[in-house]
Simulated scan of single mutants.
Amino acid sequence: MIRYLSTLFIAIAATFVACQAKAEKVVVYQEGQLVNPQEVADVLGKTRSIHLLDDAAPAASAALTTPSGDTHAATKGSAAAAGGREQSNGPAAALSLPVRFAFGSADILPEARTQLDALARGIKLLPQDRAVLVEGHTDAVGDDEYNLELSRARARAVRDYLVQHHGIAASRLKTVGYGEARPVEGADPYAAVNRRVQFRGA
């Protein structure tokens, strides 16, 4: 009986977490798109409860919102967010960048630096005691455990870049990797749009 109740409680909790994540809006910048530091500060300045479920990340997805405020779902197989307008459920809770890394590694490619530099300017607009969570995500190509470790390494690489190149205190930047467990809603799990780094106020 205790085992049954425990299983039931876990199932209910997982459903609640998944529903919360599904309703979440994320501002998504495309590759090469200029990042607005003020928008970064506006999104990351909001604080919400964060649970670092690094080792047991539930499958969850997020609605995508372009920097202009339009909400989109990624089309199957597309490398960019596209699709029809959806209802907005309040302000965005996170911001997503398509940070480019060398294949199969956590080495940040030069073309990713412009967006990361603008992101850093946005973080510097926040109060000094405001922390930011850096989330690594991958597509479904490859082994689950490999993708989980790769997403963690990439989140740490972005943190290190922000610390070393912009002087942001490492204590303000928390990292977590979700591997392939949280694909973009409506996207093929193998689509490039799932290879992203997301940021949220912590």
Rank of each mutant, 00 (worst) to 15 (best):
T15F: 06
D129N: 11
T175N: 04
K22Y: 10
A118S: 13
N36I: 06
M1T: 12
R100I: 13
E24G: 10
P183Y: 01
R159P: 05
A192C: 02
R196F: 02
I50N: 08
Q128F: 06
F103C: 03
E149A: 15
E86A: 14
A59H: 02
G84N: 03
P110N: 05
S68K: 09
Q198H: 03
S49Q: 09
L150R: 08
A170L: 04
G167E: 02
Y4L: 15
A14V: 10
I108V: 12
V158W: 00
L52N: 04
D188V: 13
I108P: 04
P91I: 09
R121W: 02
L95C: 11
L109Y: 02
L53T: 12
Y146E: 15
A102W: 00
P91E: 13
I123H: 04
Q87W: 04
A73V: 10
K25H: 09
F16P: 06
L97F: 07
V35L: 07
K174T: 11
A140C: 10
A131K: 08
F199G: 14
A170P: 03
I108K: 03
D188N: 13
A118G: 06
A63H: 03
E145L: 09
S88I: 13
H165E: 14
L150H: 03
D42R: 08
E185Q: 06
T175C: 11
E135N: 08
Y178L: 15
I50D: 06
D70N: 09
A92C: 07
A82H: 06
A102N: 02
P127D: 12
D144V: 12
E111W: 01
L125D: 09
L126H: 04
A57Y: 05
A21W: 00
P37S: 03
A192H: 02
R196C: 14
V132C: 08
Y4A: 15
T47L: 13
A93M: 08
V141C: 06
E180L: 10
E111D: 14
P67W: 00
L116A: 08
T15Y: 01
H51Q: 11
A131Q: 11
R3Y: 06
